[in-house]
Amino acid sequence: MDISLETAARITSFIAALVLITSFAMLAQKRIYGLIHLFAWQGLFLALNTAVVGYIADKHHLFISSLLTLGLKVFLLPYILYVLIKRLNIRKDVETIVNMPTTMLIGIGLVIFSYHLTAPVRELSTLMTRSTLTIALATVMIGLLMMITRRNAVTQIIGFLAMENGLFFTATSATYGMPLVVELGVALDVLIAAFIFGIFFFHISTTFDSLDVGQMARLKEDEMNE
């Protein structure tokens, strides 16, 4: 099957749009399970995108990283989070620090900002994925925004993972992916990070009876209070 570059660019930008929409949906989502589902969807779109890019650019190692993404981000990590939430029996709604419309507006601002940032790269790059670079960068920033505006530690880790998604996406769209070794390493890192977070949460919740990261302020040695 032969796909013209034009069509391929269309397909990748459509997938990029879907990734963007999942990012914003995660910002807007008010239930924790919904958040995990969205995260899984985002992983699926990323895997799809990687596969498409791999096919067009004829880079076969991208298929492996696509499969890796599929296995890790669509099935394994959501499952771990799911189990974590079940075990720790935490609240099912997402508590936000900033209200939703404001977060959305900041998100839009971030997209515009990353468009501005990536402008020089877009002009120099000749890859067909260059237009998705903006969205990849925006995904990173929105992940960070999610970490900032959420109270609960589990939602924060989802933000962290979304950020990692964005980085992965950036790599795919800027240079057709990193070398396989690097990607395997990153995947392992993320997995380990997820496990460490899991153990961490368990301890936090047993210590404070809550996963509200605001509680961590109590760890600080405050002489005035003692």
Partner: peptide
């Protein structure tokens, strides 16, 4: 707000992606 967000993302993605 979601409707506005969608429409704005549409506008942005026109410049970014199309």
């Amino acid at each position: 707000g979601v409707a506005f967000l969608m429409a704005t993302l549409g506008m942005l993605s026109f410049f970014i992606l199309d």
